[in-house]
Amino acid sequence: MASERGARTGPARTKTPPVFMYHSISPSDQPDPYRLRVHPDRLDRHLRLLRRSGLRGVSLSELLRAADRGEARGLVGLTFDDGYTDYLEHALPILQRHGMTSTLYAVAGRLGGGNEWDDGPRLGLMDADRLRTVAAAGQEVGSHTMTHPHLPGADAESLAAEIGGSRTVLQDILQADVVSFCYPYGEFDDAAADAVRAAGYDHGCVIGDYDPGDRFTLPRCYVSPRDTGAHLVARMARHAVRLRLR
């Protein structure tokens, strides 16, 4: 999914270790036109590679807290977009086996439903009880808006409803602060990023953009269904180079 580059200026670039972006984790062989489905065995190989490299995957909030303390060395971020039900069955046991955490981004207005924003195969989304199970397992739950819309160009009222409204819904479900936000499709503009800040989130993440790369437009590395460990290593190296050069 391509992201749309914003033109924000002001806050300084936030330099963190790389953050990997997954979606569905499933052994299904059904059509996957948007390349969202990573096989559980492949995720397991990815995490084993991280461990062998002396790295530990953590939620985005944990990564940023460590970066704020100057203690992020040896960490990478792990995120899972959309809140698919297969996270509980397939991703969570693998994360727990490797002693890692992640951020799961839920679409608050579609809980218990499906990915209606796509015209591809229908995938089930977690309901409120499943989200509570995720949080109780020590994983972070973040917001992915109410309905997964395209945010650039949206008016202020729509931004407040999608961005602030989803935080309210999720906090009511979890009875905990929700501080992490993920832009649908990785798209953002100045107004959307400002709305994330105004809604009370601590940070927001996109996909591959490195501009402006501040705390509310953090870049992530998309992981495709065919990515090997070598792909992850290459992305980590590219991330390091881009941050040094900018």
Score class of each variant (00 low, 15 high):
D29G: 02
Y22E: 08
A199K: 13
H98W: 13
S143A: 15
A161I: 04
E116R: 13
S59P: 05
V107S: 06
D227M: 15
R167N: 08
D119M: 00
L170S: 02
A195D: 06
L47T: 05
L245V: 14
Y222D: 08
D81F: 07
H90S: 01
D81M: 10
V38P: 02
G153M: 09
V76I: 13
G77L: 06
Q175Y: 00
E4G: 08
M100E: 15
E71F: 02
R56W: 01
A195I: 09
Y87W: 11
A72H: 06
I25L: 14
T133W: 01
L131M: 05
H23G: 10
G138D: 12
V38C: 11
A66V: 00
A234W: 10
A154Y: 08
I25Q: 12
R167T: 05
R197Y: 01
R238F: 13
S102Q: 07
D68N: 05
E62H: 11
A192C: 08
I173G: 00
V19G: 07
A195Y: 10
G99N: 06
D81H: 11
Q30Y: 03
G114Q: 15
A161M: 09
R13I: 01
F188N: 01
W117Y: 11
L36C: 09
R42G: 02
L64A: 09
V241L: 14
G213L: 00
R37H: 05
R65F: 03
L50K: 04
L95Q: 02
M1V: 13
P33L: 08
R45Q: 11
D118T: 10
D194F: 04
Q175A: 09
A67E: 10
L170D: 03
E157M: 15
D44W: 09
S59V: 04
D194L: 12
G109L: 10
Q30G: 14
A195R: 12
E116H: 10
R197L: 09
T217N: 04
A230V: 07
P152N: 02
A72P: 03
M100F: 07
M21W: 00
H148G: 11
L111Y: 02
G186Y: 02
S61A: 14
D44N: 11
A195E: 11
H39A: 15
F80E: 00
T228E: 14
G164T: 06
A67M: 02
V38F: 09
D68G: 00
L75S: 10
A2K: 09
A193L: 04
G204A: 15
S143F: 11
G99K: 07
S158H: 14
V38D: 04
R132P: 02
E116T: 12
T79S: 14
H239W: 12
A136R: 11
G124F: 03
E162G: 14
V241G: 05
H231E: 08
H98Q: 13
P33W: 07
T228C: 04
L47S: 07
P121R: 01
A135K: 06
L43I: 06
S28L: 12
P225G: 09
R197S: 08
A230I: 04
R56N: 03
A154M: 15
